[in-house]
């Protein structure tokens, strides 16, 4: 028997100033059965909703008016005023170059989806966030999902101390 995801039980917040892009994500989530989907254009509106309601997943565009998607993510993960430091954030962006991916990763992004995207890519990010949650790492310089997705065997005393 195959495992399934019941999207009716998940609430989504789309933060995207582009009408068509937001509509594509909205339509896809609605088709999957999600009924709690909200759309806003700016991070300030997003914070308002996040402080007021329980949102499970944020789908956010990098390029936004005022505060951009990265600053939004930074506040979510690192600010004492953050409504939920652990909330999964899927970042959508047409900035698909490697440097952008690593920047977003190092600020605590949960999933990164480069535009132009297709339905399969979006679905796989949703599955990853919902069915394969990652542990969080808190250091002096990073707070966010574990960036080591591949767990390799290590037989030393303290793997992380080798990072220096």
């Amino acid at each position: 028997m195959n495992a399934k995801i019941d999207f009716r039980k998940i609430s989504f917040l789309i933060v995207d100033g582009d009408k068509i892009s937001a509509q594509v994500v909205y339509d896809t989530l609605a088709y999957l059965g999600a009924s709690h989907i909200q759309r806003v254009k700016t991070p300030n509106d997003a914070f308002e909703i996040l402080r007021r309601e329980k949102i499970d997943i944020v789908v956010c565009e990098w390029r936004l008016r005022g505060m951009d998607g990265l600053e939004f993510l930074d506040v979510m993960r690192n600010s004492t005023n953050s409504p939920n430091r652990f909330i999964p954030v899927i970042m959508l962006t047409a900035h698909s170059e490697h440097k952008y991916v690593t920047t977003a990763r190092d600020l605590g992004i949960t999933e990164f989806l480069a535009k132009p995207f297709n339905a399969k890519a979006l679905y796989s990010r949703l599955v990853s966030v919902i069915a394969r949650p990652r542990r969080f790492i808190n250091t002096g310089t990073y707070f966010g999902p574990d960036r080591r997705r591949r767990q390799v065997q290590f037989d030393g005393p303290d793997r992380r101390s080798l990072d220096e």
């Binding site: 195959n2 495992a3 019941d6 999207f7």
Partner: peptide
């Protein structure tokens, strides 16, 4: 500090009856 994964979403939404196949 290693914080265990938040599994609330998974427990709530992943099942074998309703929804879309993974």
């Amino acid at each position: 500090q290693i914080i265990p994964a938040q599994t609330d979403l998974k427990k709530r939404a992943v099942n074998f009856v309703n929804g879309f196949d993974i």
